[in-house]
């Protein structure tokens, strides 16, 4: 299955586009997505200071609400990655 990850803040380093398509095994959840992101970052972006991102980011569902690690992802679901925030 595949999901579309909408990128915000520091996660924008992961792509030139606003979204990143990520391949996942069937029935994956947010925890699995964190693991896949850790792998992508260690393989391709090890020098970009993103190593803590999979651990510190929250994820929003299409309803713009934080979902926890057990949240089951659907094929083609649109998920937002929310790195630690700091406006003002």
């Amino acid at each position: 299955m595949e999901i579309q990850l909408k990128l915000y803040g520091s996660s924008k380093i992961l792509s030139d586009k606003d979204t990143l398509n990520i391949q996942l095994p069937e029935n994956s959840n947010i925890e699995k997505l964190r693991n896949i992101l850790t792998k992508i970052i260690s393989e391709k972006y090890s020098k970009s200071n993103l190593e803590n991102l999979p651990k510190t980011a929250a994820f929003f569902s299409e309803k713009d609400e934080v979902v926890d690690d057990s949240y089951k992802l659907r094929n083609q679901e649109f998920i937002s990655i929310i790195p630690p925030i700091g406006g003002g």
């Binding site: 651990k55 934080v66 790195p83 630690p84 700091g86 406006g87």
Partner: peptide, 23 residues
């Protein structure tokens, strides 16, 4: 959910750390 990237005089830029919204 707002993020800040600083641009510096030497041409470098950096996303600033912040507060995690993870449960």
């Amino acid at each position: 959910p707002i993020w800040k990237k600083e641009h510096y005089a030497d041409g470098k830029e950096e996303w600033l750390p912040g507060h995690s919204l993870r449960p």
